[in-house]
């Protein structure tokens, strides 16, 4: 009889789920909502500010070309190289700024931790796919652009199960 009750319970549990709300996030139409603007770091306090670790954003007016981000990345992904930029900044005598290869980046965010001048943050944008490898290399001017991300969907827990909505 144990066998029969086991089957019946399984059947009941299975059929119950037919009427539950479906959990799937329909990705291209729906996108997840994230907590903040992205992962940031406060060098004075020495802790980060919670956020999604997506593509970087580089503030040209704060970057001093100190290479600390590139040094941090050297042992991890070797994704950051310092390149010459045409711009002239007072704080950046050598005119070098990081250029990030997203084909190599692992999005650990240790470069953001390494930056002492609030120049490098991470944003919510994670859709970086491209047709060629060379398109994955983001130059400093590309990194300066603030990406647009409009995710509105969150996990909600209702009476008919959890769902994305």
């Amino acid at each position: 009889m144990n066998t029969a009750t086991g089957f019946i319970k399984a059947l009941e549990s299975g059929t119950k789920h037919i009427v539950l709300k479906r959990f799937t996030l329909r990705y291209p139409e729906e996108k997840l909502k994230f907590v903040g603007d992205g992962y940031q770091f406060d060098p004075k306090k020495g802790v980060g500010i919670a956020g999604t670790r997506g593509r970087h954003i580089l503030f040209h007016d704060k970057c001093t070309g100190c290479q600390l981000c590139a040094i941090a990345c050297e042992g991890i992904a070797e994704a950051i190289t310092m390149v010459k930029v045409d711009e002239q900044w007072k704080q950046n005598k050598k005119s070098i700024m990081p250029q990030i290869d997203y084909g190599k980046c692992v999005f650990c965010g240790l470069c953001v931790d390494a930056c002492p001048f609030y120049a490098l943050y991470m944003t919510n944008d994670y859709e970086l796919s491209s047709f060629t490898k060379s398109h994955l290399i983001y130059t400093p001017s590309q990194l300066a652009v603030k990406p647009k991300y409009d995710g509105e969907v969150e996990i909600k827990i209702g009476s008919r199960g959890a769902y994305h909505g």
């Binding site: 992205g38 999604t52 692992v106």
Partner: peptide, 10 residues
Amino acid sequence: LERLSGARVT
């Protein structure tokens, strides 16, 4: 975990 750390798995 993503809310806490910013990444889904790594």
